Computed example of a mutant assay.
Amino acid sequence: MTASSPASPADEGSLALEDLSYRAAVIDLLGAIAYGEISAFERLAEDATMAPSLEDKVAILAMAATEFGHLELLHDRLRELGADPYAAMAPFRVALDKFHEHTAPSDWFESLIKAYVGDGMAADFYREIAAYLDPRTRDVVVASLSDAGHSDFVVDRVRGAIEQDPRLGGRLALWGRRLMGEALTQAQRVAAERDALSSLLAGGIDRPGLDLAAIGRMFTRITELHTDRMARLGLDA
């Protein structure tokens, strides 16, 4: 490559990863997402015991399988970066486990809302961050956030239940608001405790970052997506 040649995505990724603070941030981010996949798998498998029908049980277990299927992709990228996947996930175990303890659903419909709204908000946040990653890592993160169309199942079940019992909508709307509040609080707590993640958003000499105004706009977009997601369920945000 001559001095006048533009850098390829692969070159840009290599240069970014030479920044040790950026590399540490990427490892943290992938570790957080990877443990999130494990905890989502465990939660969904447990939620399947509340399923009212065999069809519902299979659908929720398929969602769990999708979450677990993303794990290998994330672990492979961590190994490419020279990191131990289990060591990378370890710092997030307590925080994520506590989040799920605080937001344990009391019934089948609350479990569906959590799977759709809670996991959806996390995915929105990680997609926002993905814009500031090297191309290879960005592709891995985006691929790990796919839901394989399972959200349609949740929307169908929740809207159908509300049509049969409109009172259910009010309770589930309150549950959705609680999930949003807990998720934002948890995200802020984790970011504050992990300097590497904070530095990722701040950027570096050769990497764009977010100032306070841009961070505010990012959370506004996440909130708007949450509102759209709730509306699709037939609920007020």
Score class of each variant (00 low, 15 high):
P105D: 13
I222F: 08
Y35L: 10
H226V: 05
D134M: 09
A64L: 05
A202F: 02
T185K: 14
A122C: 06
G69P: 02
V117S: 07
D19P: 01
D195N: 06
M1N: 02
A173I: 05
R77S: 04
I113S: 08
A51M: 08
A34E: 02
S14T: 14
L54G: 06
R157D: 07
H226R: 09
Q188H: 09
I38E: 13
M63N: 10
G169E: 08
G13V: 03
L133C: 09
A122G: 08
A40F: 00
T220S: 10
E42I: 07
E37D: 11
I205A: 14
V58Y: 03
L17G: 00
E193F: 00
L212P: 00
G118P: 12
Y86G: 08
H70I: 00
E128T: 05
W175Q: 05
L30F: 02
P135T: 07
R79H: 01
A59F: 04
A192Y: 01
R127W: 11
W175T: 04
L74T: 00
R221F: 04
R171P: 05
R171C: 01
M121N: 10
L184E: 13
A122I: 12
W175C: 03
I215S: 11
L15R: 13
D206I: 12
V158L: 12
L179Y: 04
G209V: 05
D119R: 15
S199F: 00
L235E: 09
P85T: 01
G13E: 06
A88K: 00
S5T: 13
I33W: 04
P52T: 07
S111L: 08
R77W: 02
L225E: 14
L20A: 11
P6K: 04
L15A: 15
R189G: 06
A115T: 14
E55H: 10
G118F: 06
D165Y: 10
G118E: 09
A62V: 05
E42L: 13
R167T: 12
G82C: 03
A51W: 04
R194H: 05
R177P: 01
E72R: 15
A48D: 03
E128K: 11
L71W: 03
T220Y: 07
M230H: 10
H226Y: 14
Y86E: 11
G160D: 07
Q164L: 13
S199P: 02
R157L: 07
V158Q: 10
G176Y: 02
R136Q: 14
G176F: 03
A7E: 08
R178E: 04
A213W: 06
Y35K: 06
A202K: 01
G36I: 01
A148I: 03
E193H: 03
A131G: 14
L184W: 12
R136D: 15
G36D: 04
T137H: 11
I38R: 15
T227S: 09
A131E: 15
E72S: 14
R232A: 13
L201F: 01
A237P: 14
G149H: 12
G216D: 13
M1A: 12
A187F: 07
F68I: 05
D84W: 01
R93Q: 14
